[in-house]
Amino acid sequence: MGTYKLILNGKTLKGETTTEAVDAATAEKVFKQYANDNGVDGEWTYDDATKTFTVTE
C-alpha cells in the first residue's frame, strides 16, 4: 500500500486529495472517478517519484 496524491486544476474546482492504494493503476481509477464525480475532465499526468497525479482542464 502507498499514499497517492491528486492535484485538481479544474476550471471551477481546484484542490488536492489523497488515497491509499496498492498501486498507481488502482489509485488512478479512484482519482478518475473522483474527478468525474466533481465534473473535472482534462489532461492527466503522473509523477512516479512523488506518486502524484495531476489533472488540468
Score class of each variant (00 low, 15 high):
E20C: 10
Y4R: 00
E28I: 08
G10Q: 04
T52C: 06
G10Y: 06
T56V: 07
V22T: 11
V40I: 14
F31S: 00
L8R: 02
E43A: 11
A49S: 12
V40W: 13
E43T: 14
T18C: 08
A35W: 03
V55W: 04
K14H: 10
A24P: 09
N36H: 15
T17C: 12
M1D: 06
N36D: 11
D41V: 14
Y34W: 14
E16S: 10
K29H: 11
Y46I: 02
N38F: 15
V30D: 05
D48L: 10
Y46D: 00
N9K: 08
A24E: 06
T19M: 15
A49Y: 11
Q33E: 09
A21E: 04
A27H: 00
M1H: 10
K32T: 05
T3C: 09
T45E: 07
D41Y: 13
G39I: 03
T18E: 08
D47C: 09
Y4Q: 01
F31L: 05
T56P: 01
N36P: 02
M1T: 12
N36K: 14
K5S: 06
L8H: 04
A24M: 12
K29E: 10
V40D: 02
T19G: 03
A35M: 06
L13R: 10
I7K: 06
A24R: 12
V22L: 09
D47T: 05
A24K: 14
E20K: 10
D23M: 03
A27I: 01
W44D: 00
Q33Y: 05
T3Y: 10
D47A: 04
L13C: 14
A21Q: 07
F31I: 01
G2C: 13
T12A: 11
K51L: 09
A21H: 03
V30C: 07
V22W: 12
L6V: 05
E16M: 12
L6M: 04
D23E: 04
N38Q: 13
A25L: 10
F53P: 00
A21F: 04
A25C: 09
V30S: 06
T3E: 11
V22K: 10
F53S: 00
G10F: 12
A24N: 05
Y34D: 02
A35K: 01
W44C: 02
E20S: 11
G10T: 15
L6S: 01
T56K: 06
Y4N: 01
W44H: 00
A49W: 08
F53I: 01
L6Q: 00
E16W: 14
T50F: 05
E16Y: 14
M1L: 13
K32D: 02
V55Y: 02
I7E: 04
T18G: 04
D41K: 13
Y34F: 11
L6H: 00
E28G: 07
D48S: 12
V55E: 01
A24Q: 13
V22I: 13
W44M: 04
G15W: 13
Y46S: 01
K14S: 12
T45K: 10
T12Q: 11
A49D: 10
T45F: 12
T26S: 14
K32G: 03
I7Q: 05
A35G: 03
A49V: 12
V40S: 03
K11P: 11
D23L: 03
G42N: 02
K5V: 10
W44F: 04
D23N: 09
M1S: 10
D23T: 05
K11W: 10
D37C: 09
K32R: 14
T19N: 04
V30M: 09
T26P: 02
D47F: 04
K51F: 11
G2E: 15
V55D: 01
K32N: 04
N36R: 15
E43R: 10
M1C: 09
V55F: 04
E43Y: 12
K51S: 06
A49Q: 12
L8V: 13
T18L: 09
G10D: 03
T54P: 00
Y46L: 02
T19C: 11
M1P: 11
T26M: 13
L8M: 13
T3S: 07
A25I: 11
E57V: 06
G10M: 12
A25V: 10
Y4I: 02
L13V: 15
N9E: 08
G39L: 08
T19F: 13
G2L: 14
N36Q: 15
V30N: 07
E43V: 14
V30T: 13
G2S: 15
G39S: 07
N38A: 13
Y4W: 06
D37E: 12
D37H: 08
A35C: 10
D48F: 09
T12E: 09
Y34M: 06
D47L: 04
T3A: 09
T12H: 14
Q33R: 12
A27D: 00
Y34G: 01
Q33C: 05
N9Q: 10
T19A: 08
M1F: 11
A25W: 10
E16V: 11
Q33P: 02
A24G: 04
T50N: 09
